[in-house]
């Protein structure tokens, strides 16, 4: 089990949460987790697309909270 970080992007408009997440994930090791908190209406669907494009794994905890595991 890797390190668990939290990225608070509540109130930030898309694409800021995805850009911030991309930057954070670059510094993580495979298996590390990060929790993204974001409430922009585009974040949830964009996060799923981001995971498909980058090969990382996303679990939806709630409409504004997401767990990401770096692959």
């Amino acid at each position: 089990m890797g390190e668990n970080l939290v990225l608070d992007c509540l109130g930030a408009l898309c694409p800021t949460p995805i850009i911030q997440l991309s930057k954070a994930v670059r510094t993580m090791n495979p298996g590390d987790h990060i929790t993204l908190k974001a409430d922009d209406p585009a974040t949830k669907s964009d996060l799923i697309a981001w995971a498909r494009m980058t090969g990382n794994h996303v679990t939806i905890i709630s409409e504004t909270s997401f767990d990401i595991e770096k692959s």
Binding site: C14, P15, A42
Partner: peptide
């Protein structure tokens, strides 16, 4: 105001 419902329905990235 909202991201494209078309792109969302297809699971396509809505930003950029």
């Amino acid at each position: 105001i909202e991201p494209s419902h078309v792109l969302q329905a297809m699971g396509i990235l809505t930003h950029g």
